[in-house]
Amino acid sequence: MPEARISWRGFAMNQRTVAMVEAAEQVYRSKFAILQGSYNAGGVGASAGTHDGGGAVDVDVRTKSAAQRVAVVKALRQVGFAAWLRTPAQGNWPYHVHAIAIGDKDLSRGAAHQVAEYRRKRNGLADRGADDGPPGYYGMTWELYVKAHPPKEPVPDSTISLAAMEYARTHDAMTGAWGADRARVIAWAAHPRVGAITKAEIVPAAGVPWHLHFQRVIRKVQLHFKLEVTGIFNNSVAAVMKRYGYKIVA
């Protein structure tokens, strides 16, 4: 099944390639300037058909230092691209990094050949010279990179509603005011700073009323911060949470 195509920063790409480029940008800690994307049949003659299919991207590095150029190549290789620095001395082109996404389902024949040459530690050019980029990533793929670097869970909303906290302490029903604000309470209980204290006890065990479970969570937080243990989300708890970056609302 072919890769899902999209338009990204004005270039034709597929979603897998875009995800890989964005991951490489995070490794490099800066966005790339794209010179050429994928699915660009006949677009640039010097590309020898490698951009005719998917998985291909050229990054502009004309204004970067020698060290920065190597760093771009390395970042792309780290996430599963076969990537090389291309210089004016090698062909009729400006300084750029040429990258092919290893394992892309839409690779052109030329791009697939370059991947094979990369794994043979060659430069991907017609002269079949030795690879001139940072070594050590020849076996890397996007799937291996994602497995080793799973995406981080988004941090829950850090806004605390005092009304929701009070309702949760005395009610079990998931309707009315509690129903409207329950997301605030659950987000607070699930937040890493609170979850580390309460072992992320977001919902009660079977047979335990919700309001009693919530009071138990509050007591754990109060005990952790050496506050009076009341089971009530009071001003003392609110003051501690504010120090931890929470926003307290009515």
Rank of each mutant, 00 (worst) to 15 (best):
I100W: 05
Y137T: 00
A164N: 06
K105W: 05
P154L: 06
N92Q: 13
A130I: 10
T170A: 13
P154T: 03
K152G: 14
Q114K: 14
A99M: 10
R184Q: 11
I186D: 10
A83D: 04
D131E: 13
P135I: 00
E153W: 05
I102E: 04
D127W: 08
V146R: 14
Y145A: 10
K147W: 07
Y145S: 10
Y167L: 12
E143P: 03
G129Q: 05
A163M: 03
A126N: 12
D104P: 08
V115N: 02
Y95R: 10
H98E: 10
G133A: 11
L162H: 02
S161N: 15
R119Y: 04
K147S: 12
V185F: 01
T87M: 11
S108A: 12
A183N: 12
I160Q: 02
D157L: 11
L85I: 11
D181R: 06
R169L: 07
W93Q: 07
A148G: 09
H113Y: 01
R122I: 04
W178M: 15
P94S: 07
Y118L: 01
V146Q: 13
W84I: 07
I102V: 15
A173S: 09
P135T: 12
G133F: 01
N92W: 07
V97H: 08
P88A: 08
R109M: 10
A130E: 07
W84E: 05
P150E: 06
P134S: 14
Y118W: 13
P88K: 08
Y137P: 00
A112I: 03
M165R: 08
G176V: 11
A180Y: 11
G136S: 02
W93P: 00
K105M: 06
G91K: 06
D132H: 04
R120Y: 00
P156H: 02
G179V: 12
R128W: 08
A116C: 06
Q90Y: 06
T159L: 12
N92P: 00
T87D: 10
Y145K: 13
E117G: 04
P134E: 15
Y138V: 08
K147C: 00
Y137W: 01
D172E: 02
N123T: 04
P134V: 15
A173E: 15
A163G: 09
D132P: 00
A101Y: 03
K121S: 12
T175C: 05
L125Y: 09
K121M: 12
H96I: 09
S161E: 00
T170N: 13
P135A: 12
P135Q: 08
V97A: 13
A173R: 05
A126K: 14
A148E: 13
D127M: 05
A111M: 11
W142H: 11
A111Y: 02
Y118G: 03
S161A: 14
Q90P: 06
Y138C: 01
W93G: 03
T141A: 12
E143I: 01
E143N: 15
P88I: 07
K121T: 11
R86S: 05
A82R: 01
P154S: 02
G136D: 00
Y138K: 03
S108P: 09
K105N: 13
G124V: 00
L107N: 03
E153D: 14
E117Q: 14
V155W: 00
T159W: 08
K152P: 04
A126G: 13
L162V: 07
W142I: 07
V185G: 05
Y95S: 01
E166K: 15
H149I: 07
D132L: 02
W84V: 08
T170G: 07
